[in-house]
Design a binder for these strands. Sequence first.
RNA 1: GUGAUUGUAGCUCAGUUGGUUAGAGCGCCGGAUUGUGGUUCCGGAGGUCGCCGGUUCGAGACCGGUCUUUCACCCCA
Length: 458
Amino acid sequence: MQKPSIPRGTRDFGPQQMAKRNYIFNTIKAVYQKFGFSQLETPTLENLSVLTGKYGDEGDQLLFKVLNSGDFLSKTSEDDYKAGSKALLNKVSEKGLRYDLTVPFARYVVMNRNDITFPFKRFQIQPVWRADRPQKGRYREFYQCDADVVGTNSLLCEAEIIVMINEVFENLNLENFTIKINNRKILQGFTEVIGAPGKETELCVAIDKLDKIGKEKVIEELENNGFDAENLKKLDPIFSIGSDLQANLEFLEGFFTDCEIGKEGLKETKEILTYLEAFDLQDSHLELDITLARGLSYYTGSIFEVKANGVKIGSICGGGRYDNLTGVFGLKDVSGVGISFGVDRIYDVLEELELFPASSDSDLQVVIVNFGEETQSASIKLLSSLRAASINAELYPDASKMKKQMTYANKRNVPFVIVIGEDEIKSGEYVLKNMLDGNQENLSPESIISTIKDNLKS
RNA sequence: GUGAUUGUAGCUCAGUUGGUUAGAGCGCCGGAUUGUGGUUCCGGAGGUCGCCGGUUCGAGACCGGUCUUUCACCCCA
């Protein structure tokens, strides 16, 4: 006999967890649809040629590769083996599990460019896989909920995304969160102003950690990556910057007087803010964080990330604009912008802050106690009436002891139990028991249904 | 991928320098209550101490490997 197990970093989801997860999925999906996005699904497996090279060297390492079917060694030679794992990989694997939803989406757009009307807005809710070491809030299989718009440069899309983020978290009753926004052009502007053009990646990677490891360590890392004293001196002012939106805008205004790319990033950010004013949000939760960089290398314009305040977990949502994602697949000049909600992390946040509504625990509303053959037809008749009235109901399948059936109903968190025994059949009035307060009364089938319906409304 | 860390009943955890038959709480099952759950009382079942190997007269405890958990890097939802 063997012990059953699941791969590291993966999870089963039981009924209670699924109820809660669906609550999150449904909330996000409803908002996406309201904003005009339509749903798309792509295969779990992609050709490795589609996936590799899109996420940087680090990303390639985190791809799950799938061994070719059949005798995967038949097309290899001893030389391939000697050439090392990388070279051998190409010979034994040509498919991999999707790493995110954006690249498959880009692939879809290019393959279907003739059938798509632009701007194309789609959302996609599917699992993705990454072969990194699991930690809390980090899994090897997890769901992403993406929404992207491609085929327009309009910054209205950015603004709408921020509105959507607000609406999703508002609907999830999460109030204490921050949307951090920045622009890759602003970061690129930094490298130009300080005299280190072309070193965006190094700067981004280091500066992204500012709130985590502090100024000294960031400077140390920059020095190790070839930034000289002059560079660092010019960079110094941005370390002392706060999170106040207006103040940061003014600061950048001065910082970028002679820098075109920086000015552009600033202008874009301001335009987004102008749109947001028109949307008239009560609280946009917005913060201009000029140290926000985000890892994915394909971002070229605005970038954003959402943090749940007071919960020790990474970002729960992120995204940005990419100007040339379809370019690698041969389709030029298609700009896109998108976001992705991390359901698994949102779940952990809602759980920790106890924000799941009680109703997401159970969906069964009534259990009818089974007394055996004599009462069965009356029970089934009532069962059907309950269901016809859109009340989730079931008849206990066996005529077990009442105690056992009551225990079952209690465990399922059912608010009502109906008892139909011999006495009840005679009188035509059944027992309706409220499981919350323990009270029960004899009622006609019609009053039972209306009582339950009234209760559900409140 | 690098460096740590965790694993004992369904769950949360005790278990002394290596020494008889590995414990508790909760949960589960049964009874008190042959038509009433959630509270109370009584009883019961349940463990290859993650797995494989080693040291030892003797290993839950020590050593090696492996899997898993968590954490820090790296990176990220």
